[in-house]
């Protein structure tokens, strides 16, 4: 048994994506099977297996995935970003308002969305990296600011992006085209870019190193503050991207919400193997984590439970993942 496990761990494919990721992928299938069996029992006869269900879960996975990818960079530097959910909503509200009320071109509104996210990221990054504020309190404060700005900009109205048939609705093709999950392709593409940035560029190298030992990096003559700030900018920018995929899937955004998504995005990261202590991060893990979060939500709803169960489960998952991480580090020392 042990030998077989070791042999499996040594497979090239397993080594390439990491054993933990393989386990996570298995968990996805297990969850799928679990829901498939339980849904008919709990909701007499209604079935979990159906294409729309998969698409619906993916819709949720996209924006959680983008948020998760962004916050992965921040967690890699040893920080945290609690503002991404509301920032995503703020981006969607502002750009959607520009689109529907000011009739600006769609491509420009998408640009606005991303820019708003980047702006929030820069503000947070500045305070954390240059003013040495704790990242959690800074980002929580920014979360409030993002909620407020979104509400004020839209005069406390919800914003509905153009429906499928309307003009300027091609943004929806980013998510789904002819019932094909284009969003998944884009998520994978962006994840690939993120992986390149994190593992193959100077920026990513410095982020990971400074998350592990900031002082050693500084004493190597690196301006750690710039790279730390960059992580927050990336996080904000990707929240801006996530906004497009949120409206692409759900069209309507309401002001003053979005904070539950922080937790789910962070859950996706820590499940995927990104350490809260900083210094190690897995992009692939975050994507898989996002899919698990989305599938979990779909399953919970399909089985007839309320979304509240999702909140509780997310909380427990993060707690478990972080505890496991801390325990394993303690054991190693």
């Amino acid at each position: 048994m042990k030998a077989a496990l070791q042999k499996f761990k040594n497979l090239r494919f397993v080594k390439l994506i990491g054993f933990n990721r393989v386990v996570l992928i298995l968990i996805i299938f297990l969850m799928y099977g679990f829901f498939t069996i339980l849904t008919p029992i709990l909701r007499n006869g209604s079935s979990f297996v159906n294409y729309n269900r998969v698409m619906s879960a993916l819709n949720y996975a996209y924006f959680i995935g983008f948020l998760g990818l962004g916050v992965t960079f921040v967690i890699a530097t040893g920080g945290i970003d609690f503002s991404i959910g509301p920032v995503m909503f703020c981006s969607a509200l502002i750009s959607g308002y520009c689109l529907t009320k000011f009739n600006l071109p769609l491509w420009f509104c998408i640009f606005i969305s991303i820019a708003v996210g980047a702006l929030f990221g820069s503000i947070g990054g500045y305070f954390v990296a240059f003013r040495h504020l704790p990242s959690f309190i800074t980002s929580m404060a920014l979360m409030q600011v993002a909620k407020g700005v979104g509400s004020i900009f839209t005069k406390t109205q919800s914003v509905t992006w153009p429906a499928a048939e309307a003009t300027s609705s091609w943004y929806r093709y980013l998510v789904k085209w002819n019932n094909l999950p284009t969003g998944f392709v884009i998520l994978c593409l962006v994840a690939a870019i993120c992986a390149v940035v994190l593992y193959k560029t100077r920026a990513g190298r410095y982020m990971l190193c400074l998350g592990s030992n900031k002082e050693a990096v500084r004493l190597s003559g690196v301006d750690t503050r710039r790279w730390e700030m960059l992580a927050y900018i990336l996080s904000g920018t990707l929240a801006g991207v996530a906004a497009i995929f949120y409206v692409g899937a759900y069209t309507t955004v309401q002001p003053g919400l979005g904070d539950t998504f922080n937790n789910e995005a962070i859950a996706a990261c820590v499940m995927g193997g990104t350490s809260m202590a900083g210094g190690s991060a897995s992009i692939l893990g975050t994507v898989i984590g996002a899919i698990i979060v989305a599938l979990m939500q779909e399953g919970i709803l399909a089985m007839g439970f309320t979304i509240s169960y999702q909140y509780v489960l997310t909380g427990l998952i993060v707690l478990g993942a972080v505890t496991a991480d801390i325990m394993s580090r303690k054991r190693r020392n």
Binding site: C209, S212, N213, A216, V222, S280
Partner: peptide, 22 residues
């Protein structure tokens, strides 16, 4: 504390001070 990044490998530590060149 101040010299190496323990959790990173030899390559990453060796080029830390002049990564720009690479």
């Amino acid at each position: 504390r101040y010299g190496v990044v323990l959790k990173k490998n030899i390559v990453e530590n060796s080029t830390l001070a002049c990564l720009r060149r690479y």
